[in-house]
Design a protein around this nucleic acid. Structure first.
Lengths: 123, 123
DNA sequence: ATTACATATGAGCAATCATCGATATGTTTC
DNA sequence: GAAACATATCGATGATTGCTCATATGTAAT
């Protein structure tokens, strides 16, 4: 309660915000659903295991077992993450006999990784 | 244990993976630290509130109160997220009197958002 | 100094999540 | 059909996290 009072009052005193009436701010806001979808996608990349999986698949198609071996992780954990990434249409499957090959479903991932790696290196 | 047995055995039978000896896979893997740092960055973008904050700041510098108002959230919650994003050098501060203006510390975010929004729209 | 404002911080709680172990499904070979 | 293999799924658990409430810090005006 004391917070909303504070906010009301600030509308009159905040420097720099006179130029922004509420209407203008609304216009520049991202809509809720898009924000959630964006966040869901980013969160999918927000785990070291999934980063490693995607990075490996950036270079070549791999089967579950090979990913599991490469990461030194249990097959179950890897399979869970693969399903997770597939549900978000980041990965796709290709079945050959009993083996399932995973690969990227989209070529945006490469650019996203490149940009983010640049952000890391810089500064 | 039964899992590693399964993995050993698969090395001989997995189709398509004959071309990948362990050494080659190692070479194409991302190193652990980089994976963690990448994941940390992505996780920072993996929340609707933070997405909204960054999206708003993509267009203009804003003070804490204005962000708080725009998102319809408590000042404390916003302040916490701002600190979080600042620690990862995604945002920077500029102080004017009692007001603190936040803005992006880097111009990579725009590209990252553009690419990821494209991934969303497509398919 | 006192009051009001703007932001920052700390503790606690509910919810989410990554992993593991065990088991299930699907496929090939014998 | 039975056995072996590859992957998928289920349940449980420890760890992380986003928010709220309360309070602290810093700044400006009277």
């Amino acid at each position: 309660m004391s917070q909303s009072d504070m906010q009301e009052a600030c509308d009159d005193t905040c420097q720099g915000s006179e130029a922004l009436d509420a209407a203008r701010l609304e216009d520049k806001m991202i809509d809720d659903q898009t924000a959630v979808e964006l966040a869901d996608l980013f969160r999918a990349l927000g785990d070291p295991t999934r980063v490693k999986i995607i990075y490996a698949l950036l270079q070549q198609e791999l089967c579950v077992h090979d990913i599991s071996t490469a990461l030194g992780m249990g097959q179950s954990a890897v399979s869970h993450q693969l399903r997770y990434l597939r549900n978000l249409r980041i990965l796709k499957r290709r079945k050959v006999g009993k083996t399932v090959f995973y690969s990227l479903d989209d070529d945006h991932m490469e650019q996203i990784f490149v940009q983010t790696l640049q952000h890391l290196k810089h500064e």
